[in-house]
Design a protein around this nucleic acid. Sequence first.
DNA 1: CTGAAAGCGCTTACAG
DNA 2: CTGAAAGCGCTTACAG
Lengths: 335, 335
Amino acid sequence: MTPTIKDVAKKANVSIATVSRILNNQQGYSLKTKERVIEAIKDLGYQPNAIARGLINKRTQTLGILFPDVSSMFSSDILKGIEEIAHTKGHSVVVCHTDSSKKRMTKYLQVLNEKRVDGIIFTSEVITEDYYKIIEEMDVPVVLLATQSYRFPLPYVKVDDKHAAYSAVSYLIEKGHRNIGMISGPIEDEIAGRPRVEGYKQALEEHGITFDEKKLVITSGFYYETGTGMLSRLLKQDESITAVFAASDELAVSAMSNAFEMGIHVPNELSIIGYDNLKISQMAIPPLTTLAQPLYEMGKLGAELLLDMLETGKAVESRIVPHHIVERKTVKAYE
Amino acid sequence: MTPTIKDVAKKANVSIATVSRILNNQQGYSLKTKERVIEAIKDLGYQPNAIARGLINKRTQTLGILFPDVSSMFSSDILKGIEEIAHTKGHSVVVCHTDSSKKRMTKYLQVLNEKRVDGIIFTSEVITEDYYKIIEEMDVPVVLLATQSYRFPLPYVKVDDKHAAYSAVSYLIEKGHRNIGMISGPIEDEIAGRPRVEGYKQALEEHGITFDEKKLVITSGFYYETGTGMLSRLLKQDESITAVFAASDELAVSAMSNAFEMGIHVPNELSIIGYDNLKISQMAIPPLTTLAQPLYEMGKLGAELLLDMLETGKAVESRIVPHHIVERKTVKAYE
DNA sequence: CTGAAAGCGCTTACAG
DNA sequence: CTGAAAGCGCTTACAG
């Protein structure tokens, strides 16, 4: 049987109270008894039962993380950042793949509640009223990652999507492009959809370029698959386009494949800039120039904020993290 | 305060024992009291405390998963599979990023032990004597995923690496290639390194092609970065090569980038086959032909086996899962 | 059909 | 400096 604190106490000839004190680095014992207890712990190979501790401390040292898709490259970079901080601060991470399904989401929230996690991180997920009600009742700190909520007062960590899109398009303009197309994600998406289109429009406008509907194409998602054939459609609508801003790296890579099929050379005949800076962007051929979100750092920051809230018991401010452009090989100056 | 079973009992005018029975679908109560209790549960919004349950049941309904790198595309597909099964069977998943560090690994094992997880999955990790000692003492079921152990009797789920490599190279030979190079991972790696080289050699041999050292190049890892410049080196050693077998998709994509830089057209001038079937392989330009490991299914199967061991208390047999070739656009018949 | 009580493995006042 | 005891929120014999 796995030894318990009782076994240690017996072996060291002390009460379980003093063993507990020693275990938790409290005071109230002589050096001598401490040594005896340490000895007993080693001899028995005793390891404290975190479940029993959790029951009494009302802290489980575990965090629940919700992802629409745990296996996406986007999620995995964030996860790595969260995990890193959690680990260094003595917490574990339970991952939940919600598949963007309300049913799964609700189920997970219930599980996380029953397991009494110390805090929750939502990533890239819209917080509905239903979800908010649940987390409100759970009464644990929550932080939003790569998403935000207008309706509910939840702290978030994200890039300014409109601004980031603005930066990406401005970059294209600075490179001399005037006929700039955009492959957008779903426009109903108020977090990652519309704001990026708005940033695109604003960049055009500020540089005296009138927005033209024919230069915009809208997909149903941000994935590679949803981008299939989008570049051809865009170019069919307006063949004057010399550069394209894709609302995600997967969409950008999809466009590159599409260009390849059509025999269009990137960047000689067409420049492309992506959004995210996922691993594929460096692996693309040629390597993709992109608007980088600092996903790993966002994960770290999100976890830090959550842990702060936990320690201090106070709310925390949202953070807009800096984006930047990673120049690689898919954008060429337009002469 | 979060309501407890006591609150429910009081509200429904019964003892906590009957509430517990109803909660756990046991027998020993009238329909009437059941209704009253259910009512009370709803009214209070009661949710059982899994920590308290865990303490007494000695089951936490959580699984610990160890990855050398949680953020790799390889890991994330496996994770998704594990998570899927765990979720449907009422378990949660704690992920641990070991970074292939002994220190982190040991720390995680300790944490998982203290948290009394019900089982552990190791992925792509060599089991050393130290680790084995620890898990032996933990006395929980363990399964190995995408790795195996010759020294310790631990069930595993993986592809037959040698056989898979053999299949990949045979495919190239069937396409008419005779001068086939290989970009290998580290040869000291007894799981994913040497066996693939052996499979390569055996395929050559069986087709009457003598192995030539100049056609083999060895990298320090399976990542994109570790593949940098490897193709040029290989081609410098032997310029007769018409096809290359890369020991991972990342290595293959790296080779494709390298080919692109050198102005070598894939597949017209050089055929390339990868290994893994990660997401990048479909996104590559052109899409990469590769030897597929069923990563998602492996994750599912690994979790199923682990849960089986938990339920039955019996050991389980290792599984060699089938590999197959996904034909895309990087291999061309050699005339 | 139902409840009182013991116990899971800890922590923490409280008393000495 | 140290220990007895209560209690965290459950489950499960045991008795009725």
